[in-house]
């Protein structure tokens, strides 16, 4: 595949000279912006159980495999 070289590994984190790797299909496709997250937070507020504490307490499962 022609796109192989660009995704060649960067082996060590924290290498100060290392540039971030090229995103394979452009930044918009690989990153989620903060604005995107904020809009989802508002939606989550609408679906999250009103009494979170009670909801969490009552979520009790039997063990399985």
């Amino acid at each position: 595949m022609a796109s192989q070289e660009q995704s060649r590994p960067q082996r060590r984190e924290g290498d100060p000279d290392a540039a971030p790797p090229d995103a394979p299909v452009g930044g918009a496709q690989t990153q989620v912006s903060n604005a995107d997250i904020d809009s989802v937070l508002d939606e989550i507020d609408e679906v999250l159980e009103v009494n979170a504490e009670e909801f969490v307490r009552s979520f009790v499962q039997k063990g399985g495999q």
């Binding site: 595949m1 796109s3 192989q4 995704s7 060649r8 590994p9 960067q10 082996r11 060590r12 984190e13 290392a18 971030p20 790797p21 394979p24 690989t30």
Partner: peptide
């Protein structure tokens, strides 16, 4: 293989 390398690379930076 392509996605594996891509994800490992990005997990290593951010």
């Amino acid at each position: 293989m392509t996605r594996w390398a891509d994800v490992l690379t990005r997990l290593g930076t951010d």
